[in-house]
Structure formats: C-alpha cells, structure tokens
Simulated assay, not measured.
Amino acid sequence: MKIRALLTAAALTAALPALAQEGAGTPPPADKKTPPKGQTAKAQVKDSEGKDVGEITLEQTKQGILIKGKLSNLPPGQHAFHIHEVGKCEGPAFTTAGGHFNPSKKAHGLLAPKGKHHGDLPNLYVAQDGTVQFDIFSQNGLTVKSLFDKDGSAMVVHAKEDDYHTDPTGDAGGRIACGVVEKT
C-alpha cells in the first residue's frame, strides 16, 4: 500500500508541470452567474468654471442602464440630475446641452401621469462636504446606444431639486455641472 501511494505521488509530481502548462494563458472558466458586460459609456463632469467634479459611468444591462457616479465640489443639498439631448457642455450655463433627452416626446417627471422623459433621473443628495456617490438604475426604455445619436448626449446637474412633475424641467433651476457622454 505504501509503495502504491509513493508511485501515485511520484506520477502526479512528474505530471504537475505538464498539467500546469496545459492551462497556462487560458482564462479560468467564466462564472455562469455573471452576465457578459454590456455597452458602456462615461461622462467627465465639470462645473461652470471648467473644474473637474467627477465621473459618471453608464452600463447597459438586459433590464436597463446602470448609472454610477462619484462627484465632488458641488453645493450641498438636493439637485436635479438629468440626461440632456445634446453632447455639448459649454459653460457657464451649459445651455448647449439642450433640453432633456426625450426621444419618445413624453411629459417631464417621474410622477407625470403621461410617462417621463428618458432623461429624467432621481435627484442627487449632495452631502455637506460637497460630495455625492450614487448608483441609479433606469428601466424606461433608455439604452446606452440611444445616447449616441447624431448630436450625442450630456449628463447635467441642476441648481435646485427636481419636483418630478413640472414640465419640461421639473423646476430644477440652472445647470451647475455638465459632462458629455462618451463611448468607452
């Protein structure tokens, strides 16, 4: 019995380098629970003075778009956050970003009885230190691909909070930060 165990150990030890090389360079099998990564985009957000305030990423999933961001140097409090219809962020007012992204021509507001713009998103709650980190999921037919129409799209932070029903902007006030959506 001892000889058989020693022979088995010797055979495995001799075969180990060959077995290790066989899998070299090939990635481990994919976890069947992790879906393949979808189309992605990002927006480098700047304030009205052109200073960097952070980055927003967008990732397409089967159910909608996951929008994640980490922003800083913003005024504390609630701020409307929207996707705008033009990929242009010329300060200080960012009016070049156009209106809200609204290809389906719906009324504004998450609480609007006749739907909402594709660009309507929940308010951001900026902490006293001027930072906000968020994960938002949008399921209203918005796709990453749709943001790259002929004139692109932008992510915009407003001065005031969105009331979620006043058309066309939610009474959100001026635009205080903007980032052009770009392919990654």
Results as ranks from 00 to 15, higher is better:
132 V>Q: 08
24 A>W: 14
12 L>Y: 04
177 A>H: 07
80 A>R: 12
6 L>E: 10
151 D>P: 03
160 K>M: 11
41 A>H: 10
26 T>K: 09
85 E>V: 01
6 L>H: 09
97 A>I: 05
28 P>C: 04
106 K>D: 07
184 T>W: 06
174 G>H: 10
93 A>E: 15
84 H>S: 00
59 E>I: 01
166 T>D: 13
1 M>C: 07
28 P>R: 13
31 D>C: 09
45 V>P: 04
176 I>F: 08
28 P>L: 15
3 I>K: 08
66 L>E: 15
44 Q>W: 07
92 P>Y: 06
121 L>F: 11
141 G>H: 05
165 H>P: 04
36 P>R: 14
66 L>N: 08
152 G>E: 03
65 I>F: 05
160 K>R: 15
91 G>R: 06
184 T>A: 11
3 I>C: 01
171 D>A: 13
137 F>S: 09
166 T>W: 12
115 G>L: 07
32 K>H: 14
61 T>F: 08
29 P>D: 03
105 K>G: 09
10 A>N: 06
37 K>E: 14
91 G>Y: 09
55 E>Y: 02
179 G>L: 01
95 T>D: 10
49 E>R: 14
140 N>D: 13
21 Q>T: 07
61 T>Q: 11
86 V>K: 11
71 L>M: 05
20 A>W: 12
182 E>K: 12
175 R>Y: 01
62 K>P: 03
139 Q>W: 11
134 F>W: 10
5 A>D: 13
41 A>Y: 11
153 S>R: 05
102 N>G: 08
42 K>F: 15
28 P>E: 11
9 A>T: 10
100 H>N: 13
17 P>H: 11
79 H>T: 12
10 A>R: 04
115 G>P: 05
56 I>L: 09
85 E>L: 05
54 G>W: 00
96 T>S: 14
120 D>R: 03
38 G>C: 07
152 G>C: 05
114 K>A: 14
45 V>T: 10
106 K>N: 14
9 A>P: 00
32 K>W: 15
131 T>I: 06
87 G>W: 08
138 S>Y: 07
158 H>K: 09
176 I>P: 02
9 A>R: 08
124 L>N: 00
134 F>D: 00
137 F>E: 12
160 K>Q: 14
70 K>S: 15
153 S>T: 15
183 K>Q: 12
174 G>P: 08
142 L>E: 02
93 A>C: 05
155 M>H: 03
84 H>K: 06
178 C>M: 04
110 L>P: 01
123 N>I: 05
174 G>R: 09
3 I>W: 10
4 R>W: 13
182 E>C: 03
106 K>G: 06
115 G>F: 08
30 A>I: 08
67 I>D: 05
100 H>P: 11
37 K>Y: 00
119 G>I: 00
80 A>L: 07
179 G>F: 01
42 K>S: 15
87 G>K: 02
47 D>T: 10
51 K>C: 00
69 G>R: 05
41 A>G: 10
90 E>R: 03
60 Q>C: 12
